[in-house]
Simulated scan of single mutants.
Amino acid sequence: MNLKTLIDETANRADETLDGCTNPSEARSILLELLATEHPELQQTDLRKIVDQVTAILTNEGFFESGPGGGWEGGGDDDESDGLGGDE
């Protein structure tokens, strides 16, 4: 199978595959395991190439920045999570 095709397919289903994943290193582990299971014929070097590319795509798209249930860059309830504490 063509690596470019696998990269595109894996990136396209990231929302379901990486649901709740908040950082690239966690995503890499999940993707490596998934691809090794689904495509046992691939060598480790090919698996790593695919995962590197998918992680880069997701990072460029802001996948890890949007947070759980995110996907948009609007405010929200930052007051509770800004770490500044203010009960005023």
Rank of each mutant, 00 (worst) to 15 (best):
A11K: 04
D8H: 10
I30K: 01
G76M: 05
G83S: 07
T5G: 14
S29P: 00
A14M: 01
I30H: 00
L31W: 02
N60D: 14
D19C: 02
Q53K: 15
A11F: 00
A56Q: 10
T37Q: 09
L31F: 01
T22D: 00
L84Y: 15
L32W: 00
A14W: 00
S29D: 11
W72I: 14
E33I: 13
G67W: 04
D15W: 00
T5I: 15
G83F: 03
A36Y: 03
S81G: 10
E38L: 08
S81E: 12
G74C: 00
G69Y: 04
E88V: 08
E65W: 05
F63W: 00
P40G: 08
N2L: 12
D46P: 05
G67T: 11
E9Y: 04
H39R: 14
D77M: 04
P24W: 00
P68K: 11
G70W: 03
G20E: 03
F63Y: 13
S25K: 11
H39V: 06
I57R: 11
E61A: 09
L18K: 01
Q43G: 13
P68V: 14
P24I: 02
R48L: 07
L42H: 07
R48S: 13
G86D: 14
I30L: 05
S66V: 15
G76D: 11
G20H: 04
